[in-house]
């Protein structure tokens, strides 16, 4: 903590330690990360309504039932995308970056991904890096 000793004292400065957390993945989150290691995207299916969720989760938000089997998702495509030219501080990026939300046919939910190539809606993509976030390439 500090304060500026002077005629223009108007504020008190402090830095709070709030950046170190451990976030528990949970059962479904662990399975999702295992899938990434295997080069797979896992979704999870609700036995009652048949919806498949990605990221996989423990419960169906519509039925409020515990979800059941894990399924491997295929055919990723870009639902929407944006390209970032300036950072949060107003500095122009040396190279703009594109981020998209990737969805899978018939699946509820999606995953964020950095995009290589010219992003556009409904374009199919290939996952080139199974990580969080994903990296995808427009095909």
């Amino acid at each position: 903590m500090s304060w500026d000793k002077g005629k223009e004292t108007k504020s008190w400065k402090d830095i709070m330690e709030a950046e170190k957390y451990v976030y528990t993945l949970g059962e479904a989150g662990e399975k999702f990360l295992e899938g990434l290691k295997e080069g797979k995207i896992y979704g999870r299916k609700c036995r009652k309504c048949g919806r498949v969720y990605v990221p996989p989760r423990m419960y169906c938000e519509d039925c409020f039932e515990e979800l059941d089997e894990y399924v491997t998702l295929r055919s990723p495509y870009i639902d929407s995308f944006t390209t970032i030219y300036y950072d949060d501080e107003g500095n122009k990026l040396d190279k703009p970056v594109s981020i998209a939300i990737i969805r899978f046919e018939g699946v509820k939910g999606g995953l964020l991904a950095y995009v290589e190539g010219e992003a556009n809606q409904n374009k199919n993509v290939e996952i080139i890096s199974y990580d969080i976030p994903l990296k995808v390439k427009v095909v």
């Binding site: 957390y21 976030y23 993945l25 989150g29 990221p55 970032i84 300036y86 950072d87 949060d88 990026l93 970056v97 981020i99 995953l111 964020l112 950095y114 969080i132 976030p133």
Partner: peptide, 11 residues
């Protein structure tokens, strides 16, 4: 914190 913040978007 796991699926969105980890993107570390510049903006």
């Amino acid at each position: 914190p796991i699926y969105v913040r980890t993107v570390k978007s510049p903006n």
